[in-house]
Amino acid sequence: MTAPLSSSRSRAALRISARVSAELLLVLAGLAVALWLLGRMWSVVWPLVCGLLMTTLTWPVARVLRRRGWPPALAASVVTVLFLLLLAGVVALIAVPVASQSGELSDGVVEGIQRLREWAAGPPLNIGDAQIDKAFDSAVARAQEGLGSMVGAVVTGVSTVVNGVVTAVLALFLMFFFLKDGPRFLPWLARQLPGRLATDVPVVFARGWDTLGSFVRSQAAVGLLDAVLIGLGLWILGVPLVLPLAVLTFVSAFVPIIGALFAGFVAVLIALVSNGLMDALIVLAIIVVVQQLEGNVFQPIIQSRGLGLHAAVVLLAVTLGGSLAGIVGSLLAVPIAALIAVVWNYVREQLTDPAPGAGEDDPDLAGPLPS
């Protein structure tokens, strides 16, 4: 016979459940308020994010100059001017041609999807169901919207002219000040914070900066290699729109997993429409080979340490970011998830009990510093 439930234990379990639920609701409310404030301050936050991302790319050059004895202001000025010259060259040689061919690229994708639809409707599949037709129509609309957003992100993200000169100027000025005064920020921050926060917050900031810099630089290098190799293969096969497809491949590298699938899908469709089925299959083979080289050769060499995120977490982050903020959310989703993982790992380190006897053998492992 089953023993009756204990009323005292049941009430205690309900109280604990209610308390945990209330705490979760408070955390969710805090996150909602933080997101609302972020949206209200986006005109300031977006230039700050752009400035930080540009600083992660240019900081290695500034660091080399500073180590050679250059004054911080001079090193930051030289790097900023070189970055502006490079930016102007990219706009003139890449962004403008890509923008002029974006309509042709979008039309090619739509035509390729229509051909797939016709193929699916014929033998051997003979799919003619209304739901399938609706799915293909939805795919056409999503391809047009996603491709337009991606090309727009290329143009605005590289030249930062189409969507506002103010954002470009603010981001560049912030990049200059980050390059000039960045190393003094953490010591200054430590002096402003009381007690234990003076130790914890700078450590988290330093780890987050290392993670962000590693992600941006490694993804840029891997994306450039992918764009060059795939673009070379498309050029050899005589596939049109090589430059827009190469730029699309480069930008898609900043959206792990999903970006590579999207860029490869677009390249295969363009090859199918312009060169036929055989060349489309060759393009597919080239993309598969390049992606295998990326995953097994390029990325391990270029990216010395990963973000510590599981592939499922990356997929969920990209999906959530895209649903919340479109292409910008997809681009920023993985770095934000990695920064959250940095904070969580540090908190877990501080809350983990030290191994038995560790405090006796090594005073540095005895636990958190006193406040």
Rank of each mutant, 00 (worst) to 15 (best):
L31K: 03
A76L: 02
W36C: 12
S304V: 02
L307Y: 04
A121V: 02
V96D: 12
G231Y: 01
V216T: 04
S138T: 13
V61C: 04
T211R: 08
S214E: 12
A271T: 03
L82K: 04
L48D: 13
L293E: 02
F136Q: 02
I236R: 14
G264F: 13
L369K: 10
L28E: 08
R66E: 09
T319N: 03
D137F: 01
R67Y: 05
A271G: 08
S6Q: 07
S17A: 12
V251I: 13
A267I: 10
L189I: 01
G231N: 03
Q299E: 08
L237H: 09
G128L: 11
A263V: 00
L245C: 00
V328K: 07
E111A: 09
A120K: 02
V347P: 04
E111S: 11
G108Q: 07
A341D: 15
W59P: 01
A99I: 04
L65I: 03
S6G: 03
K134R: 04
A271W: 03
S102W: 06
A341N: 13
L174Y: 10
L229H: 05
W235D: 05
L369T: 08
V44E: 15
L309H: 05
Q350M: 04
S304Q: 06
R348D: 15
A171G: 04
R184G: 13
R305S: 01
S304D: 03
S102G: 15
A206S: 12
G359K: 11
I230Q: 05
E145V: 00
F176D: 13
F265P: 11
L186N: 13
L52M: 07
V49I: 15
Q219N: 06
V255F: 05
Q144Y: 01
L272E: 07
L307S: 05
A120N: 07
I336E: 00
V228Q: 01
M278G: 14
Q192H: 11
A62D: 10
D361F: 14
P363M: 06
A3P: 00
A333R: 00
S159T: 15
I287W: 06
F262H: 06
A12S: 07
V161G: 09
A280W: 15
A366Y: 04
R196H: 00
V45F: 12
V91R: 14
P60Q: 04
D200R: 08
V342L: 01
L65A: 14
L105R: 09
G30C: 03
R115S: 02
I287G: 07
M1L: 15
P240E: 13
S21R: 14
I301V: 06
V78N: 06
V222P: 00
P183H: 05
L37N: 10
R11F: 10
K134W: 03
D181R: 09
